Every structure is written in structure tokens, then in C-alpha cells.
Simulated scan of single mutants.
Amino acid sequence: MTKKENIASVLAFEKKLVPSDGYMYGTTWASKNEITPLKLIEKSVRGTISNRFNRKDSKEFEKDPMKLDAKVENPNLQTVDVCTLSTDQDTLKLHFTLKVLGGVDQPSACNNTLFKQSYTSAVKKYINKEKFTELGKRYAMNLANARFLWRNRVGAENIEVQVIALNKDSEQSWTFDATKYSTRDFKSDDQNINSLGTRIATALASTDDFLMLEIICFVQIGKAQEVYPSEELVLDKGKGKKSKILYSVNDIAAMHSQKIGNALRSIDTWYPEFDNEESSAGPIAIEPYGAVTNLGKAYRTPKDKQDFYTFFDNWARGGALELEDEHYVMAVLVRGGVFGESNK
């Protein structure tokens, strides 16, 4: 079979990890049952001019310092959203659900029968051999270590994560002290991690089964401290009255499901630079090109033949990959996306 006969120009996969938005509440570490929804507060502040000036302005300021004084005299007025605990609360509660779906062996759209057959065969070989054990463990670790808290995790005295399986007739629960688990690697032989990882892996490896998880996280950060919901993307800040808009749902401060999902799939330690301490970003989110937007860098490039498409095109047509590369490819398929190939 030639490659031209085996091209799927329409190829898409539905995501298999489906988190909800995360809702934020205030409480105390001593009495976690007494909770109140956290609301956004609008604040107007008078900032100073602190941005870097262009070269032309800098030269003018060198010649005439009075011009800089005049510039600084103009206040940098801003209206922003903030969110804080109350003065009698020291703990943030974050609550969301996560659905884990099976059926990764079947694309949601594929217009080439020959490709679909070879792809399905490759996935079934992986499932029979690996049973999603490694990926399941890594997703479980990112629940246990509370990576999904993002900035809210920094400076926390205590972090407790409760994970509850809600499936009828197979309820189960796990409780983790997130401070005991690393966010830099996945080297853990914890019994609870393995148990939760097995439940996630079993769902991923199934044909049409699912796992429904409820996640409740308590973070002791200090009385009246600021918490950090997701920030909305404002395309034209000049036209709006606020320079920072935070996310809320029904007046409850919240985190985007996409942000939670990004944290859960930050399991890629297989990219080439991971072992290089100077250039490593730690575990990065599963992406076809290993893109880390806040660093402005792609860790998996076609030039180095480490990107998803290089691996996938070979593997899905019956080619062999290293085990770590197979894990990576399967994790991208769990992520989902549109991966059609041009036949030109």
C-alpha cells in the first residue's frame, strides 16, 4: 500500500479528558464545611509609568530629564478585577468534575478506510501491550499534586485534594496531601496514585466506557489573601473600561475548563530537552509541537523529527516507535484535535 492510498485528509479525534470549569469558594482550614462562593471585586488603582520606553524617547529623556518628570506625573489609572478571601477565611476551595472517556481507537471523523484500519490496529496493539497504565498514572499524579491550581498553589501551607469516582456501583474515593507530590516528575509508587491511575487507564482503554470524577481541593493560603481565577482574554483593552477581567460563572469566581485541562495533560517529559536542566521547562502540556506559549518556544519541532505528525504518520501506518514516543502519540490522541493530512 502506498502512502498516497493511505492518506486521511479529514481526520479528527474527540478529547477523552473532559474537565468542567472550576468553581472557587472561601472557607477555613479548621472548618471546611462552612463555605461561601467567592465573588469578583472591581478595584480602581493609580499606578506609575514603569514600561520600557523606545530608544527615541530614552534619548530625549537623557537630553532633557524634565520630559521624563512630565511623563511620570501622568498617573497610570487602571480598573481591574480582583478576588480575595474574606478576613475570617484562610482557605480556598476549588471544585470541578472530570470525565474520562474511552474509544480512542475510533476517530470521530476519517475519510480513508485503509488509514482507519491501520490506525485502529496500531491503537489496539498499544492498548493490549500498555493498557494506558503510564498515562493513567501521570494524569492521576496531576490530580494528586494539584497542578490545576496554577498560581494558587504557590505559597500554600496545606493542600488537600479529594477525588471521588461517581460511577454507579463503582464508587471510590482518594485523598491526597498535594505537598507530598512533585510537580517536576512522575516518579511515585504511591498506592493511592496507582489505584486512581488504574481507574483512569481502564476508562481510556475501553471501547465505550467512562469514568466520572469529582475533585474537591482545599488550599490554605492565609486570611484575606488574594486568589487567582482565570483571566479573560481582552482583545482590545483600549475600548473597555477594565484592563483586567477575571472569569466568573453565576457570580462565582471560576477557572476555565481549558486551563484545568492544560494542567492535567502537562505530562510530557519525553521531549528531547527535558533532561537538560538549563533549557528544560519541566513537564509540559501535551501538544503536537510541544508549544509552551508563555516561554515562546516549541520543544518538538519537525526539523528534529520529534513532533506529533512525524511520529503519527509513521506509527498509524504500521511503523514502529520507541515506547516513550508511543506514550506521547497516544497522549496527543487523548487530547484530541484535527489532524487531517493534505494529499497534495
Rank of each mutant, 00 (worst) to 15 (best):
G22M: 14
K242Y: 01
L166I: 02
E287H: 15
K129D: 12
Y126M: 04
G340M: 00
A205H: 10
I260S: 04
G102L: 12
G240R: 12
I127N: 08
F115A: 00
E5L: 01
I41T: 07
K99P: 01
A8Y: 00
T28M: 11
A331K: 06
N54S: 12
K16N: 05
G102T: 09
V82W: 01
D236R: 09
F312W: 14
Y289A: 05
T301D: 06
L68N: 08
G22D: 06
E14L: 09
R199K: 15
I284M: 01
L149S: 13
G282W: 08
V332H: 03
F308L: 08
A122E: 04
L333Q: 05
L196N: 13
T113V: 11
D304F: 05
S280M: 06
D251S: 11
Y271D: 01
E226D: 03
P107D: 04
K93T: 10
R317K: 13
G290A: 06
E5Y: 01
R46P: 02
G240L: 09
D57K: 14
K99C: 06
K93S: 13
A146K: 07
E324K: 14
Y228C: 11
Y289Q: 07
I200H: 13
T28D: 09
E214W: 03
F311Y: 14
N54E: 11
T36C: 08
L114H: 01
M141K: 10
F96R: 04
N167W: 02
A203Y: 11
A122G: 04
I286G: 10
E226C: 06
F176G: 03
A320K: 15
V80A: 02
F115T: 00
F210R: 14
K4P: 00
T198H: 10
R335P: 03
Q220R: 15
D190E: 03
I35A: 09
K4Q: 05
N262R: 05
F13Y: 15
K244M: 09
K131Q: 15
Y309W: 08
S266Y: 05
A144G: 07
V163D: 05
K129W: 02
Q225P: 02
G340I: 00
S173V: 05
I127C: 06
C83K: 10
T183W: 02
C83Q: 05
K93V: 10
T48P: 00
Q225W: 04
G318F: 00
S266P: 01
T179A: 08
G318R: 03
T133K: 14
G47D: 14
K71F: 14
A316C: 07
N142P: 11
F13N: 03
V163Y: 07
P19K: 06
E171W: 01
L11Q: 09
M141N: 12
F218K: 07
V100F: 08
D325E: 15
R184H: 12
D190Q: 03
K239F: 06
D313N: 14
R153F: 10
K223Q: 12
T84C: 15
E231T: 13
S20F: 04
E232M: 14
N167A: 04
I127L: 12
R184Y: 09
E273K: 08
S248P: 07
D105L: 09
W150R: 11
